[in-house]
Design a protein around this nucleic acid. Structure first.
Ligand SMILES: [Mn+2]
Ligand SMILES: [Mn+2]
Ligand SMILES: [Zn+2]
Ligand SMILES: [Zn+2]
Lengths: 137, 137
DNA sequence: AATCTAAACGCAACAATGTTGCATTATAAT
DNA sequence: ATTATAATGCAACATTGTTGCGTTTAGATT
């Protein structure tokens, strides 16, 4: 996605196309897998920490990025697909963390998981998988 | 599980049966659902924060409790079943968070999820579900 | 192109969470 | 009872996340 398209996307979601947002989205696209907050911060420096938190929050809120993984106070973020928008995040994919290279990636699953909990209302299901990725195997 | 059994369990896992550990395990048993760190801390006071972190860590390490849920820097812990031990945590159940009462609970699923990622090695799968529980529905 | 306004930014200050080192105390074996 | 080791409490520190506020920027309007 080039700079023009990104600007369009941001404005469509009622966000100003600021340097910070464009820079972050470009880096996330280039990265290939989900980025941890600390990696984002390194790549974005010298940015103010607070501004970064607020930038991430705004993109998250508008369905442009999503939290892919969280462990040991490290949150990983990934770009959302076309199914997400300002109204809601709709992810039916899983998130995989490789224990060797520590990469976190989004994984489309062949079979969609059907969960039945009688008398429960299910709004969201997240699947976290840990193991060894194809490249490290 | 009474105090004598708990002491046995702790010693079987090479942990000393200290007041802190017994107290925490009793509270977790009594609580009925997964406890958040902050709730644990309130119920355990006046305990030193560091001691609490180390107590939780030791019980987690030995397969006596497990992390059931994590979000917004709030970790929820639950007692492990008989399938966990010093060697490994083996959970095939899911974790449910009710968005009304904020309760986190362990849920056995009828169908076991079959995940196939070619050329990946899968060590652990966690399923997080959010919605409204039976009591709040 | 200049003007204007709400959104975004940078900074300071704070709060919460988690970690490390070390002296003291408790557990449980001898 | 004695003793070795594990656990505890405290201080100090590091990391992570939040709030308020004055300044700057995006982008709409004139
Ligand atoms: Mn994803
Ligand atoms: Mn559980
Ligand atoms: Zn890998
Ligand atoms: Zn509920």
């Amino acid at each position: 996605m080039d700079s023009v398209q990104l600007k369009e996307l941001l404005r469509k979601r009622n966000l100003k196309a600021t340097h910070t947002r464009l820079s972050l989205l470009n880096k996330m696209h280039a990265y290939g897998s989900a980025m941890s907050h600390s990696v984002i911060q390194k790549q974005m420096q010298p940015i103010d920490r607070v501004t970064l938190y607020r930038t991430i929050e705004s993109l998250h809120e508008k369905g442009i990025i999503h939290k892919a993984f969280q462990e040991n106070n490290e949150t990983f973020y990934a770009i959302c697909g076309s199914s997400c928008n300002t109204q809601a995040h709709k992810h039916d994919h899983a998130h995989f963390k490789c224990l060797k290279c520590n990469t976190v990636s989004c994984q489309e699953l062949d079979e969609t998981l059907k969960i039945s909990l009688p008398n429960y209302e299910i709004n969201k299901v997240s699947i976290h998988i840990e193991g060894i990725c194809d490249l490290c195997h």
